[in-house]
């Protein structure tokens, strides 16, 4: 063992000790959470009766494909809106003038609202006899079916609203330390506003934009309150289906709920995995 070799090794030991405290709680929660969900979906942890391995739960749930497509559709559209709005919001905030400050404060306020409250509030705003309809004086029968309508408008709007604020917060947070000097340098060298946005701001923001969008996407697929409160009765997104089954009066529905949860998890992991592969290709990261 030579001295040259031992130095990186000491570094490695220190690095391991630095990472370990974060790994332990995450490992317990993720492995425990996924493990117990999978075990339940396979019928190995029944509420009553003896455990027996079976995949019945995955087969007995009807219209799974329709629900999966609906979940994906809602998540893709709302995440796309959130990414675009969030990016431009971040640009406004970083510009640092008074308008940016107002937008910064409002978007920060939006980040702090729990989704449950957001859903209740969007419902009060957009429903047939909601605040907007009242203020504009439009009677319920002429108001478009935004809440619980065929377009899932209110659900998508709520997610897009909350997640765009989140995307903006993440981008501002990661860029604030270095963006302005680059931007000023580019401006001094004569770059136009559009060119600065395209060639300086966007490439620098892209990695955090992608990560924030992936988080928003995963959240949208996994949460149920918004779709349950503002959505249509049928078809239902995966998360709503899982919770309905979990809360079902029959004791045997729990494995089915777990099966839907496992499918949601796989779907989320697959899509976020693709996004992360995209991230590795971006040079600005690292």
């Amino acid at each position: 063992m030579t001295a040259v070799q031992s130095r990186p090794r000491r570094h490695g030991m220190r690095a391991t000790l630095l990472v370990l405290p974060a790994i332990i709680p995450v490992a317990i929660v993720v492995i425990g959470g996924i493990g117990t969900t999978v075990v339940q979906s396979l019928g190995l942890m029944p509420l009553v009766g003896t455990p027996a391995l079976s995949v019945d739960a995955f087969e007995s749930t009807d219209n799974l494909l329709g629900s999966a497509l609906l979940s994906l559709g809602i998540a893709v559209v709302s995440t796309a809106i959130a990414a675009v709005v969030g990016f431009f919001t971040a640009v406004l905030i970083i510009s640092g003038n008074w308008g940016g400050r107002i937008v910064g404060a409002l978007s920060a306020a939006a980040v702090t609202v729990p989704h449950l409250v957001g859903a209740a509030s969007v419902g009060l705003l957009l429903s047939d006899s909601g605040v907007l309809a009242r203020i504009l004086g439009i009677p319920p029968e002429s108001w478009p079916a935004l809440v619980a309508g065929p377009t899932w408008f209110a659900v998508i709007a709520e997610y897009a609203w909350k997640e765009s604020a989140f995307v903006a917060l993440i981008i501002v947070g990661t860029l604030a330390t270095r963006i302005t000097s680059y931007d000023e340098t580019a401006a001094m060298l004569g770059a136009s506003r559009g060119a600065r946005l395209r060639l300086v701001l966007f490439p620098l923001a892209a990695p955090s934009l992608l990560v924030a969008s992936a988080i928003a996407f995963a959240y949208t697929l996994g949460s149920y309150e918004v779709a349950w409160l503002l959505g249509k009765t049928y078809p239902e997104p995966l998360s709503v289906m899982a919770l309905r089954l979990f809360n079902s009066a029959s004791l045997t529905a729990r494995p089915e709920a777990a099966a839907v949860a496992v499918i949601t998890l796989l779907l989320t992991a697959a899509i976020v995995g693709v996004a992360m592969l995209g991230l590795r290709r971006m040079r600005a990261w690292q």
Partner: peptide, 9 residues
């Protein structure tokens, strides 16, 4: 974790 959870009720 699995062993803890998988024991029958």
């Amino acid at each position: 974790a699995l062993a803890l959870s998988a024991c029958s009720a």
